Amino acid sequence: MPAKPEQFKTVKEHGFKAICFSLTLRPNTAKVVFGASDFKVYEADFAATKFEPKELYGHESYVTGVALAGTKIVSGGYDCKLSWFDSAANKMIKSETAHGKWIRGVHASKDGKTIVSVGDDMVAKLWDAESGKLLHELKGHAEKTPTNFNSMLYAAAFTDDGKTVATGDKVGKIILWDVATGKKTGELEAPVFYTWDPTARLHSIGGIRSLAFSPDGKTLAVGGSGKIGNIDHLEGKARVELFDVATSKRTWEHQSDKFAGLVNHLQFSPDGSWLLGAGGAAEGFYLMLDPVGKKSIRQEKAGMHIHDVTTTPDMSTLYVAGHNKLAICECKG
């Protein structure tokens, strides 16, 4: 059944002992694999009579990214390690230090053949999903902010055809890369996502927290928070910007009139007719936007700070991970 954002509703919630940072859905099931703040990777079946997450394996710190490639789970965390786990054989294939600083995200291309990892060493790395072989190191993000503080590399996203990957950093710079060669193909600038306080705290906050390409690869959505007054709190309004990939021009800016916080996840519907955003601060939110008409469709309170969302291919069902909770939502009549 096609996804209908107008029919969006939360249908089930489950409490969890830790913060759930990332999750991914096993194809043709209601089973999710997720990483948490207790250093562990779990699998859980939302269709089961009793919700009982099963521990699969662990890291040495927060697990901030999980991706699926066939029977393999690829995960990364603040221990700077990437782990390949074969769920069919129930065994670890390999685990290695992949980045010099915290890993912020791990994502798979739509065909499951390529993995991208991003870390605070300001390097994105492309990996062969099957073998775990390093394909390319993508270096182009500055290690320091303009005020000479350490920057961070939060976000990455593939085009649907897997030929291009985008990466986004703390100061609002987005770089486009050719997956086959590892070469830079373009740059975009979104500085409003970054806030620097030069007097009260000598501190910065914000950054690009999510990226998503439209199905045709022509539009890139960028998510985060707008300018923040008190940088000790995520009080900036939830913000999404759209860019024309060919021209690097910004085509739309949406700033929520209802919710503050970071947009941690963005995803276009399969036909490109609407865009899902999700995130939070103390509480969470869902944004459903019309990228063609450049308007908001719905804004909904989530009841938790959302860190990640995974969906069925048609986006009619959403599986959501956040602070001490997992949820399932539907966008269908």
Score class of each variant (00 low, 15 high):
Glu130Asp: 15
Glu130Trp: 06
Glu130His: 11
Ser131Gln: 01
Gly132Asn: 04
Leu134Thr: 07
Leu134Trp: 02
Leu135Trp: 07
His136Arg: 06
Leu138Asp: 09
Lys139Trp: 04
Lys139Met: 01
Lys139Ala: 13
His141Glu: 09
Ala142Phe: 13
Glu143Gly: 14
Glu143Met: 05
Pro146Ser: 03
Pro146Ala: 10
Thr147Ala: 08
Asn150Gln: 08
Asn150Ser: 14
Met152Arg: 15
Met152Asp: 11
Leu153Lys: 03
Leu153Ala: 12
Ala156Trp: 01
Ala156Ser: 12
Ala157Asn: 02
Phe158Tyr: 11
Thr159Asp: 07
Asp161Leu: 05
Gly162Ile: 05
Gly162Lys: 04
Lys163Asn: 04
Val165Asn: 00
Val165Asp: 00
Ala166Trp: 10
Gly168Pro: 13
Asp169Phe: 04
Lys170Glu: 15
Lys170Phe: 15
Val171Gly: 04
Lys173Met: 09
Ile175Ser: 13
Trp177Ile: 13
Trp177Ala: 06
Asp178Ile: 04
Ala180Gly: 14
Ala180Cys: 02
Ala180Glu: 12
Thr181Asn: 00
Thr181Phe: 00
Thr181Gln: 01
Gly182Trp: 00
Lys183Asn: 15
Lys183Met: 07
Lys183Tyr: 01
Thr185Pro: 07
Gly186Ala: 05
Leu188Val: 03
Glu189Lys: 14
Glu189Trp: 10
Ala190Gly: 03
Ala190Cys: 10
Ala190Asp: 14
Pro191Val: 04
Pro191Leu: 08
Val192Lys: 08
Phe193Ser: 00
Phe193Tyr: 15
Phe193Asn: 11
Tyr194Lys: 03
Thr195Cys: 15
Trp196Ser: 02
Asp197Asn: 12
Pro198Glu: 12
Pro198Met: 10
Arg201Glu: 14
Leu202Tyr: 10
Leu202Phe: 10
Leu202Met: 14
His203Pro: 02
Gly206Asn: 12
Gly206Phe: 09
Gly207Ala: 08
Gly207Leu: 08
Ile208Asn: 08
Arg209Gln: 01
Ser210Pro: 07
Ser210Ile: 10
Leu211Gly: 07
Leu211Met: 07
Phe213Ile: 00
Ser214Lys: 13
Asp216Tyr: 13
Lys218Glu: 12
Lys218Asp: 11
Thr219Gly: 06
Thr219His: 03
Leu220Asn: 10
Leu220Ala: 06
Leu220Gly: 10
Leu220Tyr: 13
Val222Leu: 04
Val222Asn: 14
Gly223Phe: 02
Gly224Ser: 05
